[in-house]
Design a protein around this nucleic acid. Structure first.
Lengths: 245, 245
DNA sequence: GTATAGCGCGATACAGTGTATTGATCAACC
DNA sequence: GGTTGATCAATACACTGTATCGCGCTATAC
C-alpha cells in the first residue's frame, strides 16, 4: 500500500528526477543496540574511539538520531558502564561463605575490566546507579548481611566499602600497567629510548633506593597473583574486625 | 624549523627534557607557571575547565606558546599530577612504625585529593613516573623495607600495592560521592525530582533489600571515619601476613 | 481521496577542542 | 650588516558534543 504518489506539481521527468535518498531501511534503533555498538567501539579503540558520530555511523544513522535515546554523552557512558556491570556474575546468596562471595565478585570485576579495559577508566568516575550496578552492590552487601560476627548494618557497609575500594584501585592500576606494557611492547624502540633510560637515570640519583631494589630484585609475580594476594590481605583485615574475632 | 614533536633522538619525557632557555621575551613563561595556572583552573572549574587555550590565556600567551614547554596536553596533565604529588608530605623514615608511616601517606593523599578534586580523576589514569610520584612510592616502600616480619622485597611490594590500591579506590569514590552530594545540594530541586524518586522506586522493587536497609538504617559516619576505618582494616590485613604474626 | 497535523530524522550550524603549519620577528653570529 | 636560526602568534584543520531547523513521511480527519 506504499503507493508512491506523484504529486504532479513538479513536471520533472523520471529520467532526471533524483531517486529518493537511499533510506538504509529505517533500521530499528534501540538503546540496547546503541550501547552495544558503543561498547564494541570502546573495546576496539578505547574510550576516545567513542564519539556520538562514530557510534551513530556504526548504526547507519546520523548523530542526532541518538538524542532520542539519550540526552547526553555522559548518559551513554553511564549506560555502557551499567551494561558491563551486567556481565559480572553475582554469586548465589549461599549463606555463610562471605569470603567466597566477595572473592567471586572481585574476580568478576577484574575479569570484566580486562575484557573491557575502558571500564576501568570509568569505574568510580561517576556515581553508578544503574540497575546492574545496584545489583552488584546489593550482592556484595547481601553476602555480608547476617553473617555472624558482622554486628550491624554499619559493619556490613564498612566492609563492603573497604573491599570495593581495594578492588577498584587494584583493577585500575592493573589496567594502566598492562596498557603501558603493551604500548612499550608495540613500541619497544621508543620505550628503550625514553622511559627506560629515564628510570635508570632516576634510580642512579640514589633518591629511590627501595624502589630501585624492587625493580631489580623483586620477583614480580603475575598480575592475577598480586591482585589475589592483596584481596586476601584485605579480606583478612575485614575478618579481624569481626565481633567474634 | 622548530620540530615540536619529538623524533626520537632526544629524550622526550617531560621530566628530563629541558625547558627552552629563558628569554627576555614578553612575559617570562616556565613549565612551573604553566602547571600552576592549569592547576588553578582545574581547582576552580574541574578538569574540563583546563584547555590549552584557557591555560595560555591565563598567562597572556597564545595556545601554541605552550608547545615549547610540553608537546601534548597529556603531558600537561602528567605535570599537574606530579606537582600535586609534591604537595603530599612524605613522613620521615623513622624506623619501625610502618603503620604510622603508611597512614600518614594515605591521609596525605586523601587530603590532597580533597584540595584538588581533579586529582582523583587522574589518579591511576596513566602511569605516574614523575619525580614526586616516585618519591611518594619510595616513601611507602621505604616505610616497609627492613621492618622485621616483612620477609623480602616481594612482601614489601605486595603490601605497598595493596594499601595503594585501597587508598586510590577509596579516595576516588569519596570524591565522586562528595561531588554528587554537592551537586544535589546546589540543585536540590532536580535531585528530588529525579534521582531520589528513582532510587525509591528501585528499592520498591524489592530487588535490593540489603542496599535499602543500608540506606535507611545505617548510620553513615562521616567520610573521614569511613576512610580511616577501611584503612585500618587494610593495614590489619597486611599485618596478618607478616612472618612473625 | 484529499488536506492537515505531527513528528521523527537528517542536515546544518556553532562553539570549543588539540595540534600542525605557516609567517613574522628578533637575537646572535660571521 | 646581512644572514641564519630560533621563537612565538596567527591561521588552519579535523573533530568533538549538542542546539536548531526544516524536509518528508505517516497517520488522522474530513
Amino acid at each position: 500500500m506504499a503507493r508512491r504518489r506523484d504529486t504532479g506539481d513538479e513536471p520533472t521527468l523520471v529520467w532526471e528526477r533524483p531517486e529518493p535518498p537511499s533510506r538504509p531501511a529505517p533500521s530499528p534503533l534501540s538503546r540496547d543496540r546503541i550501547v552495544r555498538a558503543a561498547i564494541e567501539l570502546a573495546d576496539a579503540g578505547g574510550l576516545e574511539a567513542v564519539s556520538l558520530r562514530k557510534v551513530a555511523a556504526a548504526l547507519d544513522a546520523g548523530p542526532m538520531r541518538l538524542y532520542g535515546y539519550l540526552s547526553t554523552k555522559e548518559e551513554l557512558l553511564d549506560l555502557m558502564v551499567d551494561a558491563v556491570y551486567g556481565e559480572i556474575p553475582t554469586p548465589e546468596p549461599a549463606g555463610g561463605d562471605w569470603r567466597g562471595a566477595l572473592r567471586a565478585l572481585a574476580h568478576g570485576v577484574r575479569r570484566t575490566a580486562l575484557r573491557h579495559e575502558w571500564f576501568a577508566d570509568l569505574l568510580g568516575g561517576r556515581p553508578n546507579l544503574g540497575p546492574n550496578a545496584l545489583a552488584h552492590l546489593e550482592a556484595s552487601l547481601a553476602a555480608l548481611d547476617g553473617v555472624p560476627g558482622f554486628g550491624g548494618i554499619d559493619a556490613v557497609m564498612q566492609a563492603s566499602y573497604t573491599v570495593h575500594a581495594y578492588v577498584f584501585g587494584a583493577v585500575r592500576s592493573e589496567i594502566v600497567n598492562s596498557r603501558a606494557e603493551r604500548a612499550s611492547g608495540l613500541d619497544e624502540r621508543e620505550w628503550q629510548a625514553t622511559t627506560g633510560p629515564y628510570l635508570v637515570r632516576m634510580f642512579a640519583t640514589g633518591r629511590y633506593p627501595t624502589l630501585a631494589k624492587v625493580v631489580h630484585e623483586a620477583e614480580h609475580p603475575d598480575a592475577e597473583t598480586v591482585f589475589d594476594t592483596g584481596l586476601d590481605q584485605v579480606l583478612d583485615g575485614v575478618a579481624t574486625r569481626l565481633d567474634g574475632g
